[in-house]
Design a protein around this nucleic acid. Sequence first.
DNA 1: TTGTAGGCGTTATCAT
DNA 2: ATGATAACGCCTACAA
Lengths: 322, 322
Amino acid sequence: MTSIKDVAKHAGVAISTVSKVLNNYPNISEATREKVNKAVEELNFVPNSVAAALSSKNAGRVALMIDLNVKTQAIDEMAMRYISGAITKAMELNLDVITVFVFMFQDKTTEELIRYLQSQSISGIIIYGAAEDDLVLQELIASKKFKCVCVDQNYVGDGISSVTIDHKKAQYEVAKKLIEESQAKKILYISGYEKSYVTRSRLQGIKEAALENDVELIIKDADFLEEKAEEVAMQYGRDVDAIVCASDLMALGAQSAMKELHLEKPICGFDGISLMGYVGQGIYTIGQNFSQISAIAMEELHRLMMDEKGQIIEVEYSLIRN
Amino acid sequence: MTSIKDVAKHAGVAISTVSKVLNNYPNISEATREKVNKAVEELNFVPNSVAAALSSKNAGRVALMIDLNVKTQAIDEMAMRYISGAITKAMELNLDVITVFVFMFQDKTTEELIRYLQSQSISGIIIYGAAEDDLVLQELIASKKFKCVCVDQNYVGDGISSVTIDHKKAQYEVAKKLIEESQAKKILYISGYEKSYVTRSRLQGIKEAALENDVELIIKDADFLEEKAEEVAMQYGRDVDAIVCASDLMALGAQSAMKELHLEKPICGFDGISLMGYVGQGIYTIGQNFSQISAIAMEELHRLMMDEKGQIIEVEYSLIRN
DNA sequence: TTGTAGGCGTTATCAT
DNA sequence: ATGATAACGCCTACAA
């Protein structure tokens, strides 16, 4: 295992000097910088990140907090994109990442989770879609023990950033498209889990769209669940001209209901999961680039870890027709 | 950050003693063991795994090698299940895991990958479905630098294990079912990527099933690609009584082809991805519990890391009708 | 600008 | 059975 020591010897300088050029310290002469870099090359040296993490206080170790608890299968696709986007970017930025599934801490306290992260020398975390009633996650953020970027949230603060698309605007646009095309005068909006930022934002969007277009709105919750959306659509779908859903999966549920009722109603979803490509016949949806969002979140976390201040970053989305 | 030092002080023993009880060393009196455990409890101490990894040669750090290169969208679901299964089990076993996407090392050499893993103090890896022509992965395994368990392979050796379902038998069974039900006399088998263990195993299975049931077999490759399978089915599907596919996605491709040709032919797939639940109308398939497979792989890796010897572990599968 | 040395939190080897 | 103490590989004041 070639170490920084070997490099130092090979380059004829002190260990600390090697460390300094490795970490781009100022006050290093170009000459020694080159000497060291040459030695690094020749020895194929790769610094041991575990040792670095141990010794340094601003260790570049971050955790991905994935919450699969949302009762949805197709969540796998999003989670996977999130994870791969984050890890790929982390590699570029020289950050080490551990992946934590929130369900693994189901019956643990916030303190236990914090201690676990600390035992891993984690200094930054990315939280994907923390619901407001997920106390542990909320307390985790509030603890301020870690730099923190939230995906699909609007938290900002000291060491806290968020990255998200404009859910309100996106919901507004897709709904408007549907309304215009279908000339709907009355629509059913199937909403998501109420304790979530995205649900509220999208709700605002649909309301605005309805108001502006003089459309009557029936709003029902389905907790992002396909089956529940199907039930809701069965019950209320008959009397409306179109159905707008806060997620693709719920849109599929609504679609099933319409099929069963032998009704043809325009439907739209939200997220752009690939399943829609198979079964979302002509359904409009909002496409999100999950892996890009996650990469941006990682970059933002990196910024926070350099003690820059928190911000909200808005990411592009796209209007898709399946 | 409460450390082992604090625990030692609190318990009135030496640091090394604490370490020993923490790691279940022998030759510790019950009395001090209790003293230490009590202190651990009271201080809510969680050992810093980074420090442990640095200090110990048999660090419990493992890497998940995920190859998303397979050109398939629905691969996300499998990968996600693999990852969550592995990480959950790793947590139980007190192993730290890093996730590596093989594509991140696309244009790197094997040596670079090895050095990266070493720089992370990795001592064991799980490789998911390494193709035989993926030189880097093959060399990685051959290097013997890490304990290694392969999922969907039949490698065994010193420090190498594999965990897999019996692909041959599974393919045999699902095909037989289809043949019996449909009384097929001639079937099209759409095979997967040829340089892979699972493809060859499944091929054996279908051949055996055909032979035993006196069925004529047409075998075509489609590289696990949906579109390619569709083309193949378009071309050869007309003349056969049924179509057996080496993956669910290819089965969907075949299904599309049959629809386009306005033909009704029994089809079966392989894997049991949830997409099939949506669009695989009555299609038989082999259900694999990816997360369980992955958990078992992690357990096996743990065994290998205790210097136990390699083995092949066979996991259960199930026959599913969508 | 460069080098010396102490420390990060463990584990592991030796004494005791 | 227990305790000092030297690693592990790197970072970082501080000194030179």
